[in-house]
Amino acid sequence: MEEQDYILFENYLAGDLSADQILDFENRLKTDQNFKQAFTIYKQLSTNLEHEIGNKNKNSDFKANLDGISHKYFTKLEDQEHPIAVKKSFNFYKLAIAASIALVMGFFAYNQFSGGANYSDFNTHDTIDFSVRDAEGNIGLLIKTTKAFNNKDYKKAKAYLEELLQDDPDNVEYNFYYAITNIELDEFAKAETILDDISQGSSAYNNKAKWYLALSKLKQEKEAECKTILLTIPKDADDYNQALKLLNKLE
């Protein structure tokens, strides 16, 4: 095709041709196979660019939403198929039933006097998997981060996340997990600045950020502040039940 042809394609698509020119154009589409093929590709490319570039925000919102639903669905599926935790505690329960009665009673007694809520009762973080995303970025580093975080090696995880954030400072997911590692390492100020930001945004992490902000306060034994934050977590949040449980313990 000549340059003139592409300019003609654009004018046709933009509706800038006269009635005669349109007639000529459409005749040529019927008689000239090469012209028709090039025009078809040109038109499809335009639609593709419109979607990929013009709808960029909409597309990434969709992918984030899909990612969340998919992750939840498959985690639930895995829990149903491998209920390891339940089995283990069941065996333990059978073997140590007598001893545990004493233990449980002791635990309740302890809770009565100590006011109840401990950070360590609530810091079961979701496991992460950074290694499944698109081949962009450093896969080795993503895998190392995933392993360190899931193995509760927060010092290492923190260092790796810092590296990831250098390349991608606005990534909400990296920031979110970076904040959690900071709570684990008692770097509360750093964690809370990040969580404050995320909780005010509109990402999928904004309610989770509130929950962790509350946990950060709990770990510092700032119970009043913890309560205030817990009360801001809406009913449809993933962590709403946990929040309710903690609130009950605090009260």
Partner: peptide
Amino acid sequence: ARKKKSLCIGQLTKLVKESPTFNQLNY
């Protein structure tokens, strides 16, 4: 700008047509 736009998409059209997988695309 308008002319440049059509030539850039034209260039893309050419790249697509010349790619080795083009023949599998049912054009």
